[in-house]
Nucleic acid binder design. Structure first.
Lengths: 200, 200, 200, 200
DNA sequence: AATGAATGAGGGTTCATTCAT
DNA sequence: AATGAATGAACCCTCATTCAT
């Protein structure tokens, strides 16, 4: 029946999510997944066509969300007046609102997509995100201080920002905790970037 | 005899380093390593007892160095007066010197140890480093501002600092470039942390 | 009820026939059959007990017909006077009539039986037919020329005659085309056999 | 050692040849092959990269030989004067010589190539051969009797000629027996074709 | 009559490791 | 010191069939 099917399907998705999160797509074992889901290997294929199919079903939305963000990155926050503000508390307050629409995207599937998609058709996702962030940073850094010497750091910053988001999701499950930490992370990030770009 | 042996051994270590760096211990293929090293599977075992043995020989020094740093972390730089300085350029200059002894530790074996040791007896190394950093951060943050609310960010900061160092090594081979970027990263990091802790 | 059942059953038989014809019994996929029949795996077993059962229902009549022909092969055409005729056109005309009763037997189920029954209880059918034909040929050849040296060719001739009929059915769907080609084939066959048996 | 390796390799090739001959590429089971070869599945991959690789090593020469014959088919026998000869015994004698160079090509690997290559990169081989034969036949038939009505039989004839060669190899292992039967088959074939084309 | 979830055996393939030579 | 054949477990996937609903 429908009911039973959904139960097993959810069990598979949950077990698969954990496995993909822990080991990534390639090292993930279907045998382990179905064992944890309480079903059998053969039965798995009544629900998904392949290991990659269940992966896609898990990260699909996160991927499309990311694509949307990337394709609309020119509409990202242009709250340039913020950069003049010196009061961190005001920053916090503003960021908390600014970040709001991003929160639903920063979830376990997003982490799996970024960290565990090697060997799948999504393997380029992480690089796509990093490149858009890197060029975004370089652009901002150049606006802010065209004489800055260490433009190469942009790549490293992009990687660590993405990684920070990933780690927040991995370490903390509570949504409001995640929200606070993402705000704090971006605050930290913005201040750090500004700091290395100008005296203060 | 001795000479030839060393040549092969070096070839194995080099090929294995590249493989471990690219794929991590578990995904690394011994067949690929010996092929790139120009020897055979059987002969590999004349040099190392196992896949893990060659891994250990590669990351061993980095691990011990890391252990030393961890065990002597109470002797870490306490240039507290720096925190009063507002001029970023002075920070840069001082950090460049301060960082100097750390540079030799931030190498490919270190990256392999941190990123690729899952499945080996070194798998706890990353966590050990992260915990010492995390508690170190918490300590400093508490000194700096005992009223700060988001202590949980310490964990995330620790992870991203380590990750940033890893990325610098992975993305840039030139040593002086690495040095500059590490300085810049730590500068960015310090400013960011200070920023979220207090108004400025 | 009855009506619906027959519709489904016919759909199954039709889809199965195509699948068995294309791939033979063993390579045929039940999943493919039910998909093409517009029903489900489970429902298939309300109509047939097994993959082999539907196979049997398809080839059963062809098999019994073949059995009948084999068991009554001593009553086969003995139009011995034909062998004296030299005019091919007369042969054609006579064969066209002689072949008539055979035509309804040379159909898709017959082809499936001969070509696709490996792995079923009908797997011996092809061999049975070949043996009767072979001994039939040997008998005729011996009558015709007792000094002929290559009696072993009888086996090969039997196989290729059967195969030719199979190919005619497989390649041409139009019944009158089939009829013409069967006549031509048997004509070709008879002339060839006579040819290698004697000068003419 | 080399010796041992060759023994196993030969055992694999022999067992695989039998399996491919009996079941064709797709239905052939590697597990069955290695069992009959007296080795293990894992070890098989020390000798061949894949199931298809061992298949290719078996049929490769036969395929190249066939390609050569196809590409040089315009140089095939043009012993047109033979067609005027009425004495079958002379035909036999001439064919025996004419066929000689073809014999080494008509072997077990050839049979596997023609009958068992579905699912491999050689799957088109049979069709290639059939098409060249069919057009060859049509050409000759048209020369011989431009008014002949049943040109469609050319396809059927091509298929049964190839099949006859396959059956000769499958049924008889002795080389001289094969030679005699191939001669007889082609003799039968030529006479049959001539017969349906003209009165005699 | 119909669904499709569940099972278990088998398919080809890759792997680190052992060992006789 | 060097070879690579041999092993056995694990990998993802497909299959015909059964059965509760």
């Amino acid at each position: 029946m429908q009911t039973k099917k959904e139960v097993v399907q959810k069990a598979i998705v949950q077990a698969a999510s954990k496995e993909f999160l822990d080991k990534g797509f390639e090292k993930a074992s279907l045998r382990q997944i179905v064992k944890n889901a309480g079903t059998t290997l053969g039965n798995f294929y009544n629900y998904y066509d392949s290991k990659e199919a269940v992966f896609a079903s898990i990260v699909g939305d996160a991927y499309n969300g990311m694509l949307y963000l990337i394709n609309h990155h020119d509409e990202w926050e242009r709250r340039d007046e913020l950069w003049e503000i010196q009061d961190v508390e005001i920053w916090r307050r503003e960021l908390k609102i600014l970040i709001q629409p991003l929160i639903p995207a920063i979830t376990t599937p997003f982490v799996i997509l970024i960290e565990g998609s090697a060997g799948t058709k999504f393997s380029h996702a992480k690089e796509d995100l990093l490149q858009i962030l890197e060029s975004h940073f370089i652009e901002h850094m150049d606006e802010f201080n065209p004489h800055y010497q260490q433009a190469k750091i942009a790549r490293v910053l992009a990687e660590q920002l993405v990684y920070a988001l990933v780690m927040i999701v991995k370490n903390y499950e509570d949504e409001s905790v995640r929200h606070d930490l993402i705000v704090e992370e971006i605050l930290f990030f913005a201040i750090g970037v500004m700091g290395i770009l100008k005296a203060f």
